[in-house]
Design a protein around this nucleic acid. Sequence first.
DNA 1: GTGCGATGTATCGGTCCGATACATCGCGGC
DNA 2: GCCGCGATGTATCGGACCGATACATCGCAC
Lengths: 198, 198
Amino acid sequence: MHGYELRKELTAKLGAIRAAISYGSLYPTLRRLQAAGWITEAAETPATAEEVPALTSRRGRVVYKITAEGKERFAQLIAQAGPETYDDTGFGVHFAFFARTDQATRLRILEGRRRKIEERREGLRDVLGRAAERLDAYTLELQRHGLDACEREVRWLEELIANERSGRAPTVPNIGTAGGRREDNSPPPPGETRNERP
Amino acid sequence: MHGYELRKELTAKLGAIRAAISYGSLYPTLRRLQAAGWITEAAETPATAEEVPALTSRRGRVVYKITAEGKERFAQLIAQAGPETYDDTGFGVHFAFFARTDQATRLRILEGRRRKIEERREGLRDVLGRAAERLDAYTLELQRHGLDACEREVRWLEELIANERSGRAPTVPNIGTAGGRREDNSPPPPGETRNERP
DNA sequence: GTGCGATGTATCGGTCCGATACATCGCGGC
DNA sequence: GCCGCGATGTATCGGACCGATACATCGCAC
């Protein structure tokens, strides 16, 4: 993909956890990835006009393609888990690419995240308990709301963990965004597929 | 307060919305505030040992104090609302200092935040509806969880807005953290004071 | 024919964070 | 008595990221 397209795709995929990738971050990153040999500039293909209609006469679009080393590095990145894997953004990114990794990794990351959120929850309970009279009503309300969010996320994570353990989760990739070809149709979803909304 | 203390206080007050202020951000900020004339270095007061026990012989602690210009600027900052007032961190910070501003400001910020979250909610519904078959099961689950969080926050905000409108919210500051002296005891809280936890 | 929103690439200044360094205080254990 | 160790405390540095901005083209509507 080219930069603009990449930004749109990522914004759609990660929309639940962050607003949008800024250009001031996107373009330097692409250069960094290219310098490391993980992506290359691929030639623009103006022949496939039926694939991408309404875009015949192109200009300076730079199309990037992942390399073999890049794929290897990507697999390594989403499988390894450090402390930053469990903060809000890090976990969200890992989770969004769960379909690209194995069950053991998914389970490890889900449990690490749960531990982290439980710690945050305990911290909030502490503040609500010990420092309640020192803080004003609005601050306390904020902590209560945050505590509530923690409790809900722990329940959500536990559902997902139970789901993984019972084997009711997809192992193979669903749709090839980076690699290209789709290698399998999507097996049962991680949740109970509660998709009431149209 | 001095830096370390400030960090602890802010971490307790804002714990629900962010982890902790880093030193790499705190100390440069203090210098910036001092350069702008909004805070000054106050003399260490070793006389009030009964106020702060277990800290008699101090070292190089730098104690800061807010100036009159700083108080004015602070009041200005929490009352004015730009686009950044409604993102996650900006709103959290404003909300944590709601006891320091007036009802009109609180109402304006709560409504701006609600609008913003409603937009995010619609965006997520769009993705879940239009791009559902293009995304894998985990990504969809992430969006569902995010959508759920949006819906809950909207309900929370509407409760708070109704509360403000009915006049059941404190107008005067509760405890003087920056200014020093407490000027009033805390009036009724914003919520229904559902404080079941000990 | 012209303006305007979407598409596209790119940079710059400023801010923030994580890691790190360094020093002291208070306390408990040996 | 003294030694280590966690809490207290100030400070900097490199790297990453963001918001604003600039500039150019495409397609379409008025």
